[in-house]
């Protein structure tokens, strides 16, 4: 039993934090909002050089061969930076390729690891597919079967989102040979949804942390009544409350990382708890950060709304809160899917 990250994992996190702080400051994130695709191919290549998209790719195929417990800390950093690149979808796609193995995996995994391919995934959690416009290979479900469709064979229709970092599409394709059918396809799609939800939760932690940081910075420097507004208890206590919420969400997300990595029987409920806790914390941090900033925070020019909108879109990604609340209740109340109290014991029959 060791519920902590090791030194290497922490170092990797710090390295990515420093890299992103230098390479994609808020001004860069906002500039991406204004471009056609909202995505930056050369930057994706550089992200691959630091190992991010290839993290889950086996070493034999040029990746780092790591698992979700390593990924969790890195996604916190992409969330903190407000990075819009398709790291989550690609990670979910990599896991599908790994499971499917064979020629498909042999062809695509090295390309992902080298930054020459991006992946997109359609799933039951949403009618929309994120980043379908830049994906080289798309995983799409049709009548219970799973298809791997190259970019040239899809038709996409953009669905602009309030979050300029989020690029959503309705996707159609000519149905060919599926890569998986029946129970296997279902299991793969379930795992993809859980993995994507966990990844979104990990990003939401970073988003929440950033929103709290922005508020603390502002509250320390902004003065009213002759003192820093951060010295007012009303301000302190709001921020303290959301800090509590964030730290406990973190625990759920780290456990979900482990449950996804080990395909634990409780994976579905663990992931739903992580998604709910982290997205609630991010949304609470957004509201409180806005309140602490006052009117300046309500402007387009200030950065609060950029992260606030990340919080909104992550909340809807890979199953909205209604979906995850439903699964939580199915596990805890109806006990139709497994939920075990950590350490304590399974729920009573």
């Amino acid at each position: 039993m060791d519920f902590d990250f090791n030194e290497d994992q922490r170092l990797l996190q710090q390295a990515l934090r420093d890299f992103l702080a230098g390479e994609c400051p808020p001004a860069w994130v906002r500039a991406q909002w204004e471009t056609d695709t909202g995505r930056d191919g050369p930057f994706w290549k550089r992200l691959a050089e630091v190992g991010v998209p290839g993290l889950l790719v086996p070493e034999a195929q040029g990746g780092l061969g790591m698992d979700e417990t390593d990924l969790a800390l890195l996604l916190e950093e992409t969330g903190r930076a407000g990075l819009a690149e398709p790291v989550v979808a690609t990670s979910v796609g990599v896991a599908l390729l790994r499971e499917l193995s064979g020629d498909l995996a042999a062809e695509w995994l090295p390309k992902v690891a080298s930054g020459d391919a991006r992946l997109a995934v359609g799933h039951a959690g949403s009618p929309f597919v994120a980043d379908a416009h830049v994906a080289d290979l798309l995983f799409l479900a049709n009548e219970g079967a799973l298809h791997a469709v190259p970019a040239a064979q899809v038709r996409i229709e953009a669905q602009p989102s309030v979050d300029g970092s989020q690029r959503l599409f309705l996707v159609g394709f000519d149905v060919g040979e599926p890569v998986a059918e029946g129970d296997l396809a279902q299991a793969l799609l379930d795992a993809a949804l859980d993995r994507g939800a966990f990844c979104s939760a990990a990003e939401a932690l970073g988003v929440a942390d950033r929103l709290i940081e922005l508020a603390v910075e502002y509250a320390t420097q902004r003065e009213q009544f002759g003192v820093a507004i951060g010295s007012f208890q009303a301000v302190k206590h709001m921020l303290a409350d959301v800090k509590v919420e964030l730290e406990y969400a973190r625990s759920h997300v780290y456990r979900a990382a482990h449950s996804v990595a080990t395909a634990a029987p409780t994976r579905a409920v663990d992931v739903s708890m992580a998604k709910l806790a982290a997205c609630d914390a991010a949304n609470a941090a957004a509201k409180i950060s806005l309140q602490v900033h006052g009117a300046i925070g309500y402007t387009y020019e200030q950065d609060v709304h950029v992260w606030m909108k990340r919080a909104w879109s992550l909340d809807l990604a890979y199953g909205d809160s209604v979906f995850h609340r439903g699964r939580l209740c199915a596990g805890v109340i109806d006990q139709t899917i497994p939920a075990f109290a950590f350490g304590y014991q399974p729920l009573n029959p």
């Binding site: 902590d4 780290y254 939580l328 950590f342």
Partner: peptide, 16 residues
């Protein structure tokens, strides 16, 4: 269910 989830968070956090 949320209470159960929060008790779970407290346990996980303590193990951390």
């Amino acid at each position: 269910a949320r209470c159960w989830m929060d008790a779970e968070a407290y346990s996980l956090n303590t193990y951390q």
